[in-house]
């Protein structure tokens, strides 16, 4: 396959960026999208040009490091991560536009690499159960209904890639935040901090400069792990209840 790539190149956080065109030949349909970029990078390096910087690590779709907007869609046309997207989903002669995640809370650092530290800070604000090592009771002391465990798991699958934010027309991190709020809120272990958790996490989310939710559903459509849209409703429910109850103090 021969392709024309239009890739966002930006030398640094403060520098101007632009879409740059590259022609790449001999792309195998069995390559993953990232392997296709590897191939491009090797060709660039051999010519003495600087390779395209992009985040990636596990390449199995679970670490959440990779993420780029491919032809206007977060992670590209398939519902998976960019590392698990294969070139067979493109046709010979296609032009593919590759851009970084765009959101005010995700400043571009270089080329396709953005700073997603805001997501870590949202977790730090309350996305945990306070259970210092050594203080845990026997695991079977508190049974958890299977249904709750399943719902918790479904939300805990979030890989923190940021596709929801990138896909949202408002750059909102509601689905990311909701996934953690619901995961921990569903479990009895997370119940004592349920109110303070949602207030603190939402507070941090707002502080980081993410937009609000207009319920467009773009996030859930882009989510490679299928975190469901109703999780946002569940977080809203938790939030409003926490406000009613005076904020968990």
């Amino acid at each position: 396959m021969n392709l024309r790539l239009r890739i966002w190149r930006q030398p640094g956080p403060a520098a101007e960026g632009a879409l740059t065109s590259y022609d790449i030949t001999g792309v195998s349909p069995d390559m993953s999208f990232l392997e296709m970029l590897d191939t491009l990078n090797e060709q660039l390096a051999e010519r003495g040009e600087e390779p395209v910087a992009f985040d990636h690590d596990c390449r199995e779709g679970v670490c959440g490091a990779c993420g780029m907007v491919i032809n206007g869609q977060a992670h590209g046309p398939e519902r998976t991560t960019a590392c698990q997207l294969h070139m067979r989903h493109f046709a010979d002669g296609d032009t593919i536009v590759v851009e970084p995640w765009r959101a005010a809370a995700f400043p571009v650092l270089r080329d396709l690499v953005v700073d997603r530290g805001a997501l870590d800070r949202i977790i730090g604000a309350g996305g945990y159960v306070t259970a210092p090592t050594g203080s845990a009771p026997e695991a079977h002391a508190t049974p958890v209904p299977k249904e709750s465990a399943e719902t918790a798991f479904e939300n805990a699958e979030c890989i923190g890639c940021g596709a929801c934010v990138a896909a949202c027309p408002n750059g909102s991190a509601m689905l990311f935040t909701a996934a953690k709020v619901v995961h921990l809120g569903e479990l009895p272990q997370g119940a004592p901090e349920r109110d303070s958790r949602v207030l603190d996490m939402v507070g941090q989310m707002d502080t980081e400069g993410f937009g609000g939710c207009t319920n467009t559903g773009e996030c859930a459509t882009a989510c490679p792990k299928g975190v469901p849209l109703p999780s946002i409703a569940a977080m809203n429910r938790d939030y409003l209840r926490a406000v009613r109850r005076g904020g968990g103090r």
Partner: peptide, 13 residues
């Protein structure tokens, strides 16, 4: 707020 949170549009629609 929403518009400020997504200041740069995507080139590809």
């Amino acid at each position: 707020r929403d518009l400020a949170a997504r200041p740069v549009p995507y080139a590809a629609r």
